[in-house]
């Protein structure tokens, strides 16, 4: 896959090599090899329990704290293995923003939610922070709705707004990669539409990896798509081919709901 597409090395943002992941003795991710190009949106689809969320979490070492797990293989971001001992995990996560299924703002004000990441990275310049917060809220298409209520609690927002706040928070530290774990799972169609459009516009700045249950939404935003089944990567291809002429029968069955 990686080699056939004729991709120039420099275009690759994330490369996953021979990745295996174990919960205890259970081999959850089996020898995953793929790459994500810079400034592209890649969606990962697959049934529940196929390992797609776990895979996403290996990309920013979110599984480090889960007990009794083991990982082999490499995840290279900009050519460097993020599992090297020398890697500073805090810095790594600054570079990799993450958005989760359920909106999970901090119990703080809207402003502080976005400013939080900047503050823990030691930025003290208030003007800079205010500017950055405004910019991120604008990027997340939320600013106009909250510009007069920036110091109200984040929980006063609707679900869709909270999710966009989480997106603003994730991009505040100026990451180059954005990981999204079913970002629209709990949102109404309107909010979902806004977030899908956001994801498409984000590829100008970031490399975006989205895990999704929803095949239609995954198709809508994707440049590339991958299908996971029982911990294996069955197929990975550009979205046009993936959703019109999948090469593997199992992919075809899944995306046509014949499972």
């Amino acid at each position: 896959m990686a080699d056939n597409n004729g991709t120039i090395k420099n275009d690759i943002k994330i490369e996953v090599k021979n990745l295996n992941f174990y919960y205890g003795n259970y081999n959850l991710l089996k020898n995953i090899n793929l790459f994500f190009k810079k400034n592209s949106v890649c969606t990962i689809i697959g049934p529940s329990g196929c390992g797609k969320s776990t895979f996403l979490r290996t990309l920013n070492r979110m599984n480090d704290y889960t007990e009794d797990t083991k990982l082999t293989g490499e995840v290279l971001i900009d050519g460097k293995n993020i599992y090297n001992r020398s890697v500073d995990v805090v810095e790594l996560r600054r570079n990799i923003g993450m958005v989760f299924q359920t909106p999970n703002p901090f119990p703080k004000s809207i402003f502080d939610n976005v400013a939080f990441g900047l503050k823990i990275h030691g930025i003290k310049n208030k003007e800079f922070i205010a500017e950055r917060v405004e910019k991120c809220l604008k990027y997340a298409a939320l600013f106009d709705e909250v510009k007069d209520t920036l110091y109200k609690p984040a929980f006063s927002l609707s679900g869709g707004q909270q999710q966009r706040l989480c997106i603003a928070r994730a991009i505040a530290t100026n990451p180059s990669v954005l990981l999204m774990d079913e970002p629209t799972a709990y949102l109404d169609p309107m909010s979902t539409g806004i977030i899908l459009d956001l994801i498409t516009s984000f590829k100008k700045y970031y490399t975006v990896v989205v895990v999704s249950h929803n095949i239609q939404q995954a198709a809508r935003v994707a440049d590339y798509s991958g299908f996971f089944l029982s911990g294996e990567l069955i197929e990975f291809d550009n979205a046009g081919d993936f959703f019109t002429r999948p090469k593997d029968k199992r992919t075809e069955n899944y995306i046509t709901s014949r499972f």
Binding site: Q216, A219, R220, A222, A239, G240, F243, T244
Partner: peptide, 9 residues
């Protein structure tokens, strides 16, 4: 057109 139908429903 096929791509648009498949990706954007």
């Amino acid at each position: 057109c096929i791509r648009l139908l498949a990706l954007y429903q």
